[in-house]
Structures are given as structure tokens and as C-alpha cells.
Design a protein around this nucleic acid. Structure first.
Lengths: 212, 212
DNA sequence: GACTGTGAAGCCATTCACAGCT
DNA sequence: AGCTGTGAATGGCTTCACAGTC
């Protein structure tokens, strides 16, 4: 695979392109131009072409892209042509929401473990899974070769859970807790931080109002 | 206020700094250096100083920053020294999770409306609020001067909800649905997209594995 | 000696604009 | 004529490095 460094923004857009292309497949559209994709996801057509150019030449000059074909390429680029096992630690409302999220399994993400510390939650079932104690996390990660850990515990417990996950060998963590986590360099970390998002909105709102 | 354009990445980091400073205040720390803040949130010290420099000179050379004072500045910069009314549309698991999220009220975000289309949910109460039908959204936004709308409905309903919100006069939308929304330029839109985040992880995971 | 504030340099991502193909 | 692929130009963010201050 190419050694070229891919901007993270490009990866994010590829995910949006793949979703848009799925829609086009459902609609029965056969061919699409960079401009049409661009309009669908709110970027420029040059951006779409540049993003795709990192990975090859998928289109036909004068014509555009074959929808099915391009979708297949992007799915492979994103590593969605295989399955990834996932554990969720913290089965409060947010964790439960993710556990039952439909768009998961269809994209190859299998949730194979739900863990919590609360005695009241342990033993309850959610979908096909039973909520287990945190003590079983390491075993579950190893036996299922789990590569992705999702953290939906309160901030105070988040670092500890991250440490347990990395010790057990996950390669990536999606962190929903309001904490900056320290993880080894080999572990890919992404943060989905509600407070930060709200505060960014607040920043732009108050700037806008003070300019009125 | 300054007309200077602030990078969005700077705003995101300011939110992280403010959280770290709150921690320092709790710990009773009086003074902090850019290097200490940087270590706490995982950026470089030059980055911290540059971010703050957009808004003024808050430190003392040779000494550092007064923790309380700097926190106060950042809170004001982020517009957190006032209250913002918020509505949440879509009270499934995710919407409920946000509705009861503790870190909300403490930062000045008041949830003043929970709306849903489901007959089973309408009338139920969650915290201090009762879930109302979507038909009341516009009225609630106007009477409470709601500036922030949160969308936690399925993708298929998201654009319609966004249209209702903007028609009623919200200035910003935090979108959790897996859709690219079209909103007027005056409306600030932020997306928190679970699928995209998972697919970005998948991309880096499969790149890493193919490099082994 | 320690640490901030900042111009300059470096780096990275996006946009432009056009050659090349159908 | 229409649309892709891409080098060049632009714009923006981050890092460097150091003068200024305590």
C-alpha cells in the first residue's frame, strides 16, 4: 500500500463520500461526477478529485465515476471490506445508545463485549449481549482479537479503562468521556467530546451576537 | 471585539484548556505555565501561547499565568459567562443521554425542550422536562429564545428537523445524525458523526495491519 | 533562570487552472 | 463539450527561535 501520508480530513471526507455513494447505489444511479459528489457532501469538486487522487485513478475523463466501482474502492480504502470486533465499556445511556446503533453491524463493526462496573447493570442483556463486569475486559479483548475499544464511562474512570484496554492489546480507542487520555503512540485515539462541541458553538454564537 | 479570524482548532483547544484550568482550580494551584497546560492537554507549549495570543496577553513573563484569571478569560472568550437555551429533538437513547448529561447545566447550557414524534415518548418526563410533540418546536424556540438545537433523530428525519429549527430562528445546530445537512449560512453547524469516527479508525487500523 | 509573546520559517491542506482524455 | 487528474499557487496553522520581562 502507498506510503503517502493522507490528511485526516481526507479520511473523514472519504467516509462521507462512501455514504453518499451508497445512497446513489440505492437510487440506481450508474455514473457520478466529482461535482455531484461534492454538492452532496458540501465540499468543492476539486477537493473530491484530490482526495481520490491519493489512492489512484478511479474515474474516466469526460465521463465521471462508475458509482458501484468507486464505492467499492472507497470501502476497501477505509478497511470496511472486513469485520472489526469492538468492545464498549460503560453501559449508561450513551453506551447503550451505541450498543444498539443500527449503522454499526452493517459496516462491519461487531460489538462483542459490553462492560460496566455497576452491579445493577451487570447481567442485564442488551441486544444479543449480556453486560459483564470490567474484570472480564482483558480476556474478552484477547479472545476476540478486539481492535477497537469505545469508552463511555464518566471522566473519572476513563484513563483507567483506557489503560486496561491498551494493556489488553486494542489498537484504537474511541473516547466519549470528557478527558484527555494518554495512550501509547501505537494506539489510535479519537475523541468525541460533547462539552467541547457545545463550547465551540457557544464561542461562535457569542462572537456573532457581539458583532450585531 | 477583535475582527481577527480564529482557527477552529484554536477554539477546540481553548475548551480543553478551560477544562484543565478548572481542574487546577480544584487542586488549589495558583500559577501555571504554558508548558504545564500543554502537557495536560497534549499539545505544544508554543501552541498554547499562540492560541492565547489571539485574545490578549494574559501571562507574566518569567512567571506564567494566574490560574483563576486565565480561566476567567477563557470562559468569557468561549461565551460561557452566560446561559444558552437548548432544545433536543429526538429523545431516543442518545437524546436521553444528552438530556441528562451533567456537564451541561454547569457550563451554562439549559435544556428547555425535548421533542419527539413517537406517541410512546410524548408525555414521558426526563429530569425536569416532559417530552413534547415536534409540532411545538417552533413555539418553544421562539418563546425561550433558543439559540442551540441538538438533532438526535434518525438520518431520514434530520434535514426536516434542521429546517424547522432554522425556520424558528436557532443560530446553531449540533447534529448527531448520519447526514450532511444543508442550513443557511448564518446558522453554525457542527456534526458529531459516529459512523465517520468508526470508519476513520478502520482506515488507520487497516493501514497499520497492511504495513506489518 | 524561567517563562511569555511574537515575527519568521516551515509545513500542510485547499483551491486554482489547465492539460489530457472520452 | 464535459469531466478527470494534477502541478502550481495560495492560504492557513504550527513550530521555531529569540527578544523581552520578571
Amino acid at each position: 500500500m502507498k506510503a503517502l501520508k493522507i490528511p485526516e480530513a481526507t479520511v473523514v471526507r472519504l467516509s462521507l463520500y462512501s455514504r453518499h455513494l451508497r445512497q446513489l447505489i440505492n437510487d440506481g444511479t450508474l455514473t457520478v461526477s466529482s461535482g455531484e459528489i461534492a454538492a452532496g457532501v458540501g465540499v468543492s469538486s476539486a477537493q473530491v478529485r484530490k482526495d481520490l487522487a491519493y489512492f489512484g485513478e478511479f474515474g474516466t475523463r469526460g465521463v465521471g465515476y462508475n458509482v458501484q466501482e468507486l464505492h467499492g474502492h472507497i470501502v476497501r480504502i477505509l478497511g470496511l471490506n472486513r469485520e472489526w470486533n469492538v468492545v464498549i465499556v460503560g453501559v449508561g445511556k450513551l453506551g447503550s445508545a451505541l450498543a444498539v446503533y443500527k449503522g454499526f453491524a452493517s459496516r462491519g463493526f461487531n460489538i462483542v463485549g459490553l462492560m460496566d462496573v455497576s452491579e445493577q447493570r451487570i447481567g442485564l442483556s442488551l441486544g444479543k449481549l449480556v453486560i459483564e463486569p470490567l474484570t472480564i475486559l482483558e480476556q474478552r479483548i484477547r479472545e476476540k482479537s478486539v481492535k477497537i475499544g469505545i469508552i463511555t464511562v464518566p471522566g473519572s474512570a476513563a484513563q483507567e479503562v483506557a489503560d486496561m484496554m491498551t494493556a489488553a492489546g486494542v489498537s484504537s480507542i474511541l473516547n466519549f468521556s470528557p478527558r484527555v487520555l494518554k495512550v501509547p503512540k501505537r494506539v489510535i485515539l479519537r475523541n468525541v467530546d460533547l462539552s467541547v462541541n457545545m463550547e465551540v458553538l457557544s464561542f461562535y454564537l457569542s462572537r456573532f451576537e457581539s458583532r450585531q
